[in-house]
Every structure is written in C-alpha cells, then in structure tokens.
Amino acid sequence: MNNKTTNAAPKGRTLQLAHNPIVTFGKENLGILIGLLILCLLLSFLSPVFLSKNNILNVLRQVATNLYIACAMTMVIILGGIDLSVGSTIALSGVITGGFIAFEGLPLWVAVICGLLAGVVVGAFNGFLISKTTIPPFIVTLSTMNIARGASYVYTGGQPIRVMSDSFNFIGAGYVGDIPMPIIYLVIIVIISVLIMSKSKLGRHIYAVGGNPVAARFSGIKNSRVLFFAYLFSGIMSAIAGIVLASRMFSGQPTAGQGAEMDAIAAVVLGGTSMSGGVGKIGGTVIGALIIGVLSNGLNLLGINSFWQYIVKGVVILIAVYVDFLKKGKGK
C-alpha cells in the first residue's frame, strides 16, 4: 500500500497524553467527575461538617461495602450479565460468621473463613449455572437471591445473632492508625479489580466475552471460565461486605443487605458501564459509588428524611445516565 493511506501512528501530544492513566481517567469520566465535584462543593456550603475529617471517613466507610460488590458487579455487567444475589449473600455470610462464633463457639478465624465460603458457594453456584447452561443470569441470580435470603432466615429463625466480641468487631469497626479497616479492604479490592481489568489477560477476556461472545469463542477464549470467575468474584466480594457489616453491627442479621444489589448496579451504571456489555471501567464505578455515598450522606446532614432520599437517588441516576446518553449520541 502507499503510505498516504496508512497515517496510522498516533503522533505528538495526543500520544503522550493517551499514555498517562490519570489524564485518560479524567477524560473518560469527565461528566461524573464534574457532577461529584459540584455535589461536594454544594454540600460544603450547605453543611459545615461535610468536609470534616470524621464525616469524610464516614462517607468512605459507607461507600466501602457497596464498592466491594460494585467492583465485581462491573465485571459481571461488562460480561452482559447481572448478579441479583449479592444482597442475600451479604446476609448469609453475616449470619454464618456470627452464628459459628455465637452458636458453635468456633474460633473467630474459622468462622470468618466459613462466612467467606458461603460467598464462594453462592458465587460458584451462580457461575456454574450461568456458564454451563443457557439460563439467563437474571433468572439464575434471582433464584439464588431468594434461596440465600431464605437460608439466612432458616438458620437464624429470623432473629439477629448477637456477637459480643471485640476482636470480631475489629474486623469492621477497627482502625489502623487513623484509617478504618473497611477502607483498607476497599483500597486493596479496588487495586486488585483495576489490575485485573486493565492489566491481566483475564480482564481483556472479560471485555471480549462481554462484547462479542461468538468472536471470543472463535478466538480461543474459554467463555465459561471467564463467566465463572466473575460470578465467583462477586460472591466473594459480597461475603466480605457481609462479614464487615455484621462485625460493625455486632450481629449477623438475616435482613442485612436488602437492596444492596440495586446500590451496586446504580454505582456501575453511573460509572458509565453499558448494561448491554462489552464496555466499562472500574474507575467509573468508583466515582459512581462515591456520588451515591456523598448524596445519601449530604441528604442526611441536611436532615432530609430517608423516604425522600430514595426519590432523589432515582432521579440522580436517571439524569446521569441521560447525560451520558447525550454525550455518546453526538457522534451521529
């Protein structure tokens, strides 16, 4: 070919900028970043405590458990799926951990591992069915959502299991220096998720299977393995969230985590991940979760009652997704 038609090499400034991950991150998420910034500015004027260190840590702590799950949910949604069972898994892992300490008198670490295993089981079960059959993820996880919730009620008889143990409480409410434990887990989980999605082969395979499953198969990717991993990861992240929440509340509660799936999905969608699969980033999800967290915190600080908070949340999600839609539609 003649060289004229192959002006392929990106040149000069754009090349340098494209390689700086922070700049890319900013560019990709400009809309929601601005949204988050405006929200924070507004709140810092309206409420004097908003920018206090305590409040900020408080927001982050609340965002944390949602984000553990939302990170995994991002992968699941990029794969074109959905995981509705995460909220119930929170309850199940919480009551199992609590129960194994309170009822069975097992050592803390054994109980925690069993709690995590509960997540592994739910996740693996979802992953197995979704990767090996053609039952839609929505249906599979809708079922496991009910099963796990039911199991939590059955195990506890519907009552919270109280665990009065300081060492258990440390898991979710402790500090290292000034930093609450849940935030430490959060940082680790976000880093792992980002590394998986942007650096590993697995991550690229997730985008491939989500974007075009047929082409992925033709490319020699084992679609079922990729799917299995994502749902397993989701189960484990839910279990971690469940244990942290139980520890913070000194009890395993069968009602815990209700609606958690919706918060996680909202964070993912706010973050720009497409529900039809194939595209999305963990970075966006982090901002999405922060917006949701800051919003509820702000509404609380302003003394707006929690019924109204639902409405505000719903409206904000719609606006954000609509703005995104406008942005993407303008290429035509």
């Binding site: 942007s198 650096k199 690229r204 985008y207 491939a208 497409s274 595209v279």
Partner: peptide
Amino acid sequence: KREALFLAQSVKYNITIKALGEFIRGIHV
C-alpha cells in the same frame, strides 16, 4: 462482525487479543 470483532473496543485491543501472552505477564503489561 459476528465471529471476529469486538466492535466497541480499540484497534489495538482487537489486533492483540490473541497475542496477549507476548506482552502480559500476570499483571505486568
């Protein structure tokens, strides 16, 4: 379109998706 391309992804992604082993080791790209 049906059997080969990941339409939402970049040219780079599409060309290298089968050669990942040559430049990704674990999490080092």
